[in-house]
Design a protein around this nucleic acid. Structure first.
Lengths: 337, 337
DNA sequence: GTAATCACTTTAAACGTTTAAAGCAAATTT
DNA sequence: AAATTTGCTTTAAACGTTTAAAGTGATTAC
């Protein structure tokens, strides 16, 4: 079946394409189209099952009504959650989302961004990865509207919607201290990303504000390329009789999963042998024998704000700023009292 | 900064847009463009940071190099896995993927498909939902190239890449029988979807072939709208002293998660008190105290085959057929010997 | 010395829309 | 009766590409 285009309807009814376009775009009254023609055009469009060609429309109007979204890894819980939230809000605003996953690779990230820009998306929502500053700066130079979510680069002035990681980590650590913990370990990636560094800062500051001196011994760094073994070594070390921490604060849900797994292997019980707190949740927690207390990012809100901020930008209501969201906290039973 | 278009390069170099187009599309030699002009055009494109407008290109060539993908729910492990696989393969073939999530809703599914078709995607890869036959039939009538993955409608002749659900369930059940289980329960959704029905068929047939009469008592149906409580009731019933099944086969990973959770609540140990087998895996299994044996869909292969089948269709090498894939099996320690 | 060939380059239409501007009868005002 | 207004419709250019076809000046062939 050949594709039905405007002209087919025009011929079928015996009018010009302009008239058809007016009617189909709801400008029938405004453009004073006669009732009969309007009705016949509507009927013909229905009968011929006309579907407007968005590509042609976009070329003419210079608007694609499309948002490009690049997440760090679609397999992360955070990614699918934020994708869902962004899609829902975009839908509400009559926008479509094109998704790409950079798999935490700066090269792939750059490539994806370029593909999306070439496709003339109206704007981008990005979860940047380590070493992707150059791509971001390029976007600024090209004046492509974009907003960052979850992560940003403090030295670049960008629109971004991110968690107040410092505060979330500070509050989480304070909570652990309130629960009576003294030797609180913190497991984080060895990374230059501000969101992760802020978590470490929050942790340290909370300790200091409570008269505890942070110790590097309690802060093993996980190298992303060898995270599994680093986590195992870290856990083994922290729970050894030499160190014997009484709580472990995991800086991400991924770290938490492998950390908890290794605690299982070592036959250590949560929270009897060691208390546990996590940043973000994983579906995996659902089957852990004990509900894991954790800081939870407000994905719904984040997605909504990101879309709205982007659309503001697209409409040139340039309000460049950073939005810091408060974390939610889910208290399970993984911290001894 | 204004967008740089072909004409800008042409003006800058002092040639026609045709020449620029030829050079930038690698037809310099074929179209006998002089070396000097070719070089100057390349340099100008670089200097002006030219990015071809894919929209205009698509309008002219009637090809968008885009695949539309609609998954059932982006939060499913299966969905993010298959999305990743499809994206990777599409990338390899120089195609972009536009993703939508129907959230298991036939109305939303239809809407998404329409949006994608209007955007002139070259073809669709779909995970259809219950009651979405009409949408599928429409696509066939419009002659839009598409392939179904994971689920299909046997009464419709469609290209589809799906697991051999019957065989996977048959083999899984046989495995449980071999392990010495007699009273094997099967927990499945109350659904009209063929992929789920085939699992039930496989389960029943395996029992019968081994001289066990299937009993409805061992096959509680889970209604999607009240799955949590139905699963709980089912588990409680199956493990009651009256029924006392010795193994539970979960037809999906979602059912498995809530089933295992409730086993935890009831303080029943896997596999000591009851053996467990699942269809598909969830990230949640990672933190269950015991590795759960399960049938695993070959996502990588599925995604690759889906993209390739679709591209064949797009190129009019119409090979309409159904591909049934063999399941992988992951044997943990959740089945008593 | 005219014709044909060669090595390039330009012209212009097309893809399917949108939309400002112009067109045209009939009705109304001068 | 001429001019204007009204109510409606068409024309045609534009968006940024691609590409068949035509154009052009120099070289080669007969």
């Amino acid at each position: 079946m050949k594709k039905v285009v405007l002209k087919d309807i025009a011929n079928h009814v015996g009018v010009s394409t302009a008239l058809v376009s007016y009617v189909l775009n709801g400008q029938a009254v405004e453009k004073q189209v006669s009732k009969e023609n309007a009705a016949r055009i509507m009927a013909a469009a229905e009968e011929l099952n006309y579907r407007p060609n968005q590509i042609a429309k976009s070329l003419k109007t210079q608007k694609t009504h499309t948002i490009g979204l690049v997440v760090a890894d679609i397999n992360y819980r955070f990614s699918s959650g934020i994708t869902r939230a962004i899609e829902a809000e975009a839908k509400r605003k009559n926008f479509t989302v094109i998704l790409g996953s950079s798999n935490e690779n700066a090269g792939k990230f750059d490539e994806l961004v370029n593909v999306l820009v070439n496709r003339q998306v109206d704007g981008l929502i990005l979860v940047p990865v380590e070493n992707s500053e150059k791509t971001i700066v390029n976007l600024q130079r090209q004046e492509v509207p974009f907003v960052l979510v979850d992560r940003n680069f403090p030295e670049l002035r960008t629109n971004s919607i991110i968690l107040d990681n410092y505060k979330a980590a500070y509050d989480s650590t304070s909570y652990l201290i309130e629960q009576g913990h003294k030797k609180i370990a913190f497991m984080n990636y060895d990374s230059t990303m501000a969101n992760l560094i802020d978590r470490t800062r929050g942790y340290r500051q909370a300790l200091e504000d409570n008269g505890i001196t942070p110790s590097e011994k309690l802060m093993p760094l996980i190298r992303p390329l060898s995270y599994k073994s680093d986590i195992q070594k870290g856990i083994t070390h922290l729970t050894s009789s030499k160190v014997a921490c009484d709580a472990i604060f995991f800086a991400t849900d991924r770290i938490a999963i492998y950390g908890l797994q290794h605690l299982n292997t070592l036959n250590l019980k949560v929270p009897e042998d060691v208390s546990v707190f996590s940043f973000d949740e994983s579906e995996a927690f659902e089957l852990f024998y004990c509900p894991v207390s954790h800081a939870r990012q407000p994905l719904e809100k984040m997605g909504r704000l990101a879309v709205n901020a982007l659309l503001e930008l697209v409409n040139k209501n340039k309000i460049t700023n950073q939005v810091y969201l408060e974390s939610d906290f889910v208290i399970g039973r993984s911290c001894r009292e």
